[in-house]
Simulated scan of single mutants.
Amino acid sequence: MNSITNNTLLMMERSMDFLWTKQTAILDNLANVETPNYKTKYVTFEEAFRSRLQAAANGSALDMRDALEGAQATIHVADNETARMDGNGVDATEQSIELARNALQQQHVMNAISTDLALIRTAIRGQ
């Protein structure tokens, strides 16, 4: 499969992995909105992704495909944030907005993946 996929498709795959991880963290936050001392989880991906791509572009031991394949989302816990008196750090409204934003981002990436796969399918069929 690697011979017919390009870096763009691999980048979109990594983006979907990130968005899935982000959605899981948001859903965990919303499920624990009433749990005392629960701290909000958040996910980062862009910084690690950017640094891996820059390392590959600067001629390190990584090639571009390895940089894309190795990029992972990181889950963090906001230890110093509290939204309520019981120590819970979840802002339900903010998390609901992030969940909606994440769903729109997933839809956009899925549309882009579908478009790329349709182009590959067209090329294979020779149309």
Rank of each mutant, 00 (worst) to 15 (best):
Q107F: 13
A73F: 02
V90T: 09
V43T: 11
R65K: 14
V33K: 06
D28A: 11
I26Q: 03
A92C: 07
A56W: 05
S60I: 08
D63I: 12
G59A: 11
G70A: 00
F49M: 03
L68V: 15
E69P: 00
Q23A: 10
I26D: 01
L62W: 03
T115I: 13
H108Q: 14
I124H: 00
D116Q: 14
E69I: 10
A123I: 14
G87C: 08
H76S: 10
T93E: 15
S114A: 08
S51I: 01
D66N: 12
E69R: 07
T35A: 09
R65I: 13
T8Q: 14
M12G: 02
A56C: 11
A123T: 13
N7V: 06
N58V: 03
F49E: 01
L99Y: 01
A55T: 00
I26T: 04
G70C: 01
A118S: 15
A78Y: 07
Q23F: 04
L30A: 08
E13D: 12
R14Q: 07
V90W: 04
V77H: 04
D28Q: 11
Y42K: 08
T40L: 00
E98N: 10
V77F: 05
A78V: 05
S60D: 05
E81C: 07
M85Q: 14
N6E: 06
E81R: 11
N32F: 05
Y38K: 02
A71M: 06
G126H: 06
T74N: 04
I120S: 04
L117H: 02
Y42G: 08
Q107H: 13
A118L: 15
T74C: 00
D91R: 01
T5Y: 11
A48M: 05
L19F: 02
D116W: 04
N102Y: 06
N111C: 09
L68S: 04
M1Q: 09
Q127N: 15
K22P: 03
K41T: 00
T21Y: 06
M1V: 13
N7E: 01
M85D: 14
N111Q: 13
V90H: 05
T40G: 01
I4V: 12
K22I: 01
G59D: 07
V90L: 12
H108S: 15
L68D: 00
G70F: 00
L19C: 08
M16N: 05
T40H: 04
Q127M: 15
K39P: 04
V33P: 01
